[in-house]
Design a protein around this nucleic acid. Sequence first.
RNA 1: GGUGGGGUGGCAGAGCGGCUGAAUGCGACGGUCUUGAAAACCGUUGUCGGGCUUGCCCGACCGGGAGUUCGAAUCUCCCCCCCACCGCCA
Length: 429
Amino acid sequence: MLDIKVLRDNPEAVREAARKKRMPDRAAAVDRALELDATLRALLPQLDGLRAEQKAGGKNMGSLAPAEREALLAKQKELKARLQQMEEQEKELRAGLAKELALVPNLPDAEVPEGKDDTENVEVKKWGTVPSFGFAPRPHYEIGEAQGWVDFTRAAALSGSRNYILFGDLALLHDAVLRLAVELMVQRGFVPVDPPLLVRDAAMFGTGFFPGGEEQTYRCELDGLNLIGTSEVPVTSLHAGEILAEADLPKKYVARSACFRREAGTYGKDTRGLYRVHQFQKVEQVILDVADRERSVQHHKDIVQNAEDLLQMLELPYRIVAVCGGDLGVPQAMKYDIESWMPSRNAYGETHSASRFYDYQARRLDLRYRPKDGGKVQHCHTLNNTVIASPRVLIPLLEVHQQADGTVRVPAALRPMMSGREVIGRKVF
RNA sequence: GGUGGGGUGGCAGAGCGGCUGAAUGCGACGGUCUUGAAAACCGUUGUCGGGCUUGCCCGACCGGGAGUUCGAAUCUCCCCCCCACCGCCA
């Protein structure tokens, strides 16, 4: 969340932020928060004064003559009644303020483009050449089903729509690309993490998914736990409530995990194939560091570069877009999406999402550090980006590297993970 | 699932209902000493909110909530969490 001081000092900027993000309902929370804050701030000096009086009175209690004692007691009782009423008010105001403040979205950076939705994201870079085939290229699901690599029918029977079962070489390729991603990141100094997939509400709240994202989350109500939609949730929350030493920063983590998404409200969208599914594997990079905007921006560049390097190793053409205000989430200050070329869509499709948050998540998580110069304890900055998500990345892998007969070329970087094979599949077309 | 023990500052760990925001140790920071470092010694060191004369003053916070009391880290109740042992089990 934002520091309430930011709302006080510059309410117009916060309203403007909600507008840029196209969140009118969240803009209203700004005004409700400010009103509660003002009422609370008017109450607090009175309350503190009465408490001081009560405290001072109580300390003399022992050394008084009986008559004086009685008089003081009566006065103390009267104070108590007034205090109780005020404390009730204080409690309500604080609860209300916390609730409204949690709804106020993070401020988008100035460099976030104006725009209403993903159609207005701005391309900032393009890499690789969109392939042209000497034959009619097939979508990944046709190749996959012809090869016996993927079964959507039985998956639906077992688990409902938007599920899949991988077999054989595609199951191996899925694992290979994930392992390659982890290895690359470990080489770059990231600490591998195998995090819990079920988390308490505090982690969902702390990373900014709650309130608001409940509909997209599978919930185990009996235990009050939530299945993660991304390992960003447990990994960013890893040090929640802690005060880290600056010497231990930055923390760089890479986590491979299953991810679960309900995909509520997406009926009829991307229904075919492996694009939008309820369960997938993702390798995620997360950075926690000191509260320094320039360093955050640099980290942001670095984590985008990490993903780019992997896509280049996979020989997949991609582009990077700066996500516009209307397509930005509540907690993000700035986001780049990386989109890989998907021949079946005849378009780039999102495969990565790299966000920086500054201290927005850290405040919700109460994640802080002690500066080494002995200065005040501060909230950290957090960032994250996909390294690879599969099976979605199998779409470009199969489609870009397909051959006319239905076999698929394995990019050189993946071959060590695929028993050295250069091609997978048999001739099926 | 059963039984028991706990949740106090960066960490460990004390704490008779008012003189305890909290002993002590460690750590961290500053200094003395040293060619430098270590050791030793000296000093400083929680977070948050509010006020104004910006240095001080006031208040809140000892897992969370409710209660008893003029007054709660300390007493009562509820909840949450952690740990240990037993049982069951991948």
